[in-house]
Simulated assay, not measured.
Amino acid sequence: MSRALLLATLVACFPQPARAAEPAPADVFKQDNLVAWCIVPFDAKKRTPAERVEMLQKLGFKKYAYDWRAEHLPTFDEEVGLLKKAKIELTAVWFPANLGADAQKLLEVLKKHEIKTQLWVTMGDPAGKDQAAKVESTAKALKPIAEEAAKHGCKLALYNHGGWFGEPENQIAVIEAIKLKNVGIVYNQHHGHDHFDRFPELLKLMKPHLLALNINGSAKGGDKVGKKILPLGAGELDLTLLRTIRASGYSGPIGILGHTQDDAAERLADNLDGLKWLLPELAGKEPGPRPTYRTWK
């Protein structure tokens, strides 16, 4: 018997073990990846930290982004402690565009509790007569914050809120000018109504820098007709935008919006119900009955 035939016989008799199947990609819209956002000053019930953490637990959130006003900062330490006890990740903190007293208070609490998180920062239109000058002045203002964030193991995320600073191309130019690895983008659909037509292109551009993505019920021109912030499932663009996100391969946190003066628990529940209603159709299945919203008609 030739060596080749002998080898073939041995292989046939002793087949190689099957390769382990490639793990399925994580579902970016699964409950454990959803981040409750804009629920501190935006809450008709004005919950205490303990009440807010209890609300998050009841709704099944494992992640939370903290927004605040001056009156909330004295209880930030308490809130972070309660989040740790409840095993809810503090995914992000709304952060000033400076290192003043409020910023130091936030960093002090994060350091005390050994929390490494994202710092979400927005700015108004920068000084400068041309694009290069605007990028330079913005990078100069933000670099000290990024450097301080790095000392605490945190990341700085540029938050689009309209204007020059809210354009992804400008944010990317600023990131490239800062030249630090801990700087990225948090993108907000409710501040991106002018981007809907080119969202796939922008998402591809942002993806290498994207640290978080906050979704919203979206209607074309909705920001001009009182529909800037809708519950998921109430906007005609929602399914298309979710498909774009899933197809992009983005796998980071997905923010679920409060941001109205309704009961924050009800608004979050409306968004969760809307997302749950959209997901079957996103998978090519028939959707069930549209949810009945608590905070939107």
Rank of each mutant, 00 (worst) to 15 (best):
D223H: 14
I185R: 10
L142I: 06
G222M: 00
L202E: 11
Q261D: 08
G258E: 05
P168M: 08
L232Q: 07
A146I: 10
A133M: 02
E136H: 07
K220Y: 14
D130N: 09
N160I: 00
N182F: 12
G221S: 11
G162L: 04
L210F: 07
H161W: 00
L202I: 12
L156K: 10
F196W: 12
I229K: 07
G163D: 02
A146F: 09
N188H: 14
A234Y: 03
S251W: 03
I229H: 08
Y187V: 05
E147A: 12
N160Y: 02
L213V: 01
L205M: 14
G252E: 02
V183L: 11
G192I: 00
A247L: 06
A247K: 14
D194H: 15
A132G: 02
E176R: 14
K155A: 12
L257H: 10
V186D: 10
F165Y: 14
N216H: 11
Q189W: 11
G252D: 06
Y159E: 15
L272S: 02
G192P: 08
D263W: 00
A177H: 04
G249S: 07
L205N: 02
K143Y: 02
G153D: 07
G184D: 08
P168L: 05
D270Q: 04
D223P: 06
H152T: 06
N216S: 11
G166A: 04
H195C: 04
H161T: 02
T244S: 11
L268V: 05
Y159I: 07
G249T: 13
L239N: 08
H152I: 05
S248M: 09
K143L: 09
N188S: 04
E169I: 14
A247M: 08
L241V: 12
E167H: 11
E236F: 04
S218R: 07
I172T: 03
L211S: 01
A157G: 11
E167D: 13
H190A: 15
I172W: 03
W164L: 10
G222D: 01
V135W: 04
S218Y: 08
D263I: 00
A265M: 07
A139P: 07
D197Q: 14
P144K: 00
K179F: 09
L241Y: 07
K181V: 13
L142M: 01
V186T: 14
D223T: 12
I245Y: 15
F196D: 11
L202C: 11
K204A: 15
K134W: 01
M206W: 09
H195Y: 12
G222C: 03
L210K: 10
S251E: 14
P200N: 12
E167A: 04
